[in-house]
Amino acid sequence: MTQHNPANQLHRDSLGRLVFVDAKGVSHIGVHPVRAFPITAPTSGIGIMNQSGKEVCWYPNVADIPKAELVLIEEELAAREFMPVIEKITRVSTFATPSIWDIETDRGPTRIRLKGEEDIRRIAGNTLLIADSNGLQFLIKDSTQLDKLSKKFLDRFR
């Protein structure tokens, strides 16, 4: 593992791939960033992984990443980390599973199907991860901040 130092560089090549150049001048083509704790601590710890899955650089804190590199990292993470955030539950077909939920997310309204109550998992504190029948993950950052109707629907399944 290589701690980030000013001699390291991160840039895109002519094909749009991320390239990490370490302090020795070795280019690692096609690297990708990975958050250490994407849900519970998204701003602490990002590793730059090569195509074999080996870490070539470690950023202990997002705030310490140079601005130009952070832009590249955030672009790459946005493409890789697709996890809509549930803001409201508007309708539930039945209080038994399987059930169909109409929800509003940070990406717009949608409908999901829950196979079982085990598809709702507590991650940390009041943070929930909900998996629909297609395997797509949805996040509720803080279940205590949902509106009254959403909490009522959710309580029936927990």
Rank of each mutant, 00 (worst) to 15 (best):
E74V: 11
E118R: 06
A79Y: 01
R122E: 04
R35H: 03
I112C: 08
A96S: 11
K88S: 13
G30L: 05
T144L: 14
N126Q: 13
A68L: 14
V34W: 03
G47Y: 11
T94R: 15
L129S: 13
A131I: 01
S44T: 15
V71T: 15
T94V: 02
T127P: 11
S143V: 08
P66A: 12
L128M: 12
K88A: 10
F82L: 07
F37G: 03
G47A: 15
S52P: 01
H32M: 04
S93V: 00
G108C: 09
P38R: 09
E69H: 14
D64M: 12
V34S: 05
P66S: 14
I86H: 03
T40E: 13
V34R: 14
K148P: 00
N61E: 14
K115D: 05
I89K: 03
P33H: 07
K151W: 01
T90P: 00
N126F: 08
A68M: 12
T127E: 08
L128E: 07
E69C: 07
K141H: 05
K54D: 14
D142L: 07
L72C: 11
H32I: 01
S150E: 04
I86W: 05
N61C: 07
G116D: 07
Y59L: 13
N61K: 13
T90A: 14
F37I: 03
D102Y: 06
V62N: 04
H32F: 12
K151L: 04
S27G: 03
A41Q: 10
G135L: 09
I86L: 10
F138L: 13
I130S: 00
S27T: 07
F37N: 11
D64Y: 08
K148C: 02
E87W: 06
E74F: 03
F138Q: 03
G53L: 06
L136H: 10
K115F: 00
G135R: 06
A68H: 11
V62M: 15
N126Y: 12
L139E: 05
N134D: 14
A63G: 01
A36Y: 09
M83I: 15
K88P: 00
E87P: 02
T94W: 01
